[in-house]
Design a protein around this nucleic acid. Structure first.
Lengths: 203, 203
DNA sequence: TGTATGTGATTGAACGTTTAGTCAGCCACA
DNA sequence: TGTGGCTGACTAAACGTTCAATCACATACA
């Protein structure tokens, strides 16, 4: 129900505990410095045990990405509200609550996305997740158009820009200060008001 | 004069040859799998020689990033044209010529950007480069406002969104197909027409 | 109740390989 | 006769992975 990322709050079973440990090790050391030994440290148990549950390091990391993208997809709000309200929620999701765990999660996702350039499994998972999110946004925009609230050229085209800004913010958060992010948010709102809401609402 | 990335066309001196080799090794194997030995292979000469010119791997990689971001900054077009024409050039730069070398360069940059989360040197370099680009764009938008061609709330705010889209496209290019990128481009043009150009131009 | 049998979690030690980095010395040219 | 570019051989540490061996615990049978 809550939109907070309650990621790994109470892991069920050893496999999920290992995923949790892998996530924290990834956050702390980064992908390039991520080792089974460091995951084992975070895990609290021996690193041999990891191999009891996963065939190898690659399989573990792919499973982690799968798990994380599932969380991302679940975080996309349900279209059980008016299109206008939904867009507000989407914007909040994109620019985040600037809570620490949100930022750390985003950074981990971006780090894994970078690996997609050299790993087909990663590539496949991100394609699926990105498509899902874009289509979800496009659906709601289409609903807003049908209801006369929005006025756009092509909903899936608009959704594509939404998604690019989402990814861009994730990547920029690594280095940019909060003021810059706020600037982007303000300008993106201006875009939504001028290019999405229909005349009657824009006023 | 040309906007093509004539990156590493004719390296001057051994250090630049090493940077070139490092870049290609990074492209081929990715940051996580990047080793001195692989750089040496690409280099054509022994890996010991690398240590003759660089103290250690970190120094070499930081130097590469510095070098690459210098290229990025030099690629930002000069403001020697009308603001309207400049914006067109910027949009072309953001969405790229989809030439192979451009995409590969972008992917390498994004991969290094992800490392900025765990490396202060990388963080510093990206901050400087991002600030430079944002300010350059903001300056031109301000000029457009002064000339009456543009009508925005706050030029640096608009520039911030430009930059986010730039970074977002870089990150999305890893996994997205060209059609999606084209959608983003079309929608971003719509944004520029509705939110940047002043009424008289928007027609 | 006591004993055998099986199962999954868990470990520490060990394996072969790869890694970043060192070093003594070679070669060409001034 | 140096001096700087350059190399191959080397090392210690870290790496992913395997494995034999425990442990806790359930089930089944006498």
């Amino acid at each position: 129900m809550t939109n907070e990322i309650s990621f790994f709050e109470n892991p069920e079973g050893t496999r999920e505990e290992i995923l949790e440990a892998t996530f924290y090790a990834l956050r702390q050391h980064g992908y390039a410095e991520l080792t089974i030994s460091k995951i084992g440290d975070e895990f609290g148990k021996s690193q041999s045990l990891i191999y009891h549950h996963y065939d190898n390091k690659d399989e573990l990391l792919v499973d982690l990405l799968d798990y994380m993208l599932e969380q991302v997809e679940n975080q996309v709000p349900l279209p059980n509200q008016s299109p206008e309200a939904y867009i507000e929620v989407i914007i909040d999701e994109i620019f985040g609550t600037s809570s620490n765990s949100d930022v750390e999660f985003s950074q981990a996702v971006i780090e894994l996305r970078a690996q997609a350039a050299h790993d087909d499994d990663y590539n496949r998972l991100f394609r699926r997740s990105d498509d899902f999110i874009r289509k979800q946004i496009a659906r709601v925009i289409q609903a807003g158009v049908d209801a006369g609230a929005f006025d756009v050229e092509d909903p899936s085209q608009t959704a594509a820009l939404f998604h690019t800004v989402l990814v861009g913010i994730q990547a920029e958060r690594i280095t940019s200060d909060e003021d810059t992010i706020d600037d982007v948010r303000a300008e993106f709102r201006r875009y939504v008001e001028h290019c999405l809401l229909s005349e009657s609402h824009a006023e």
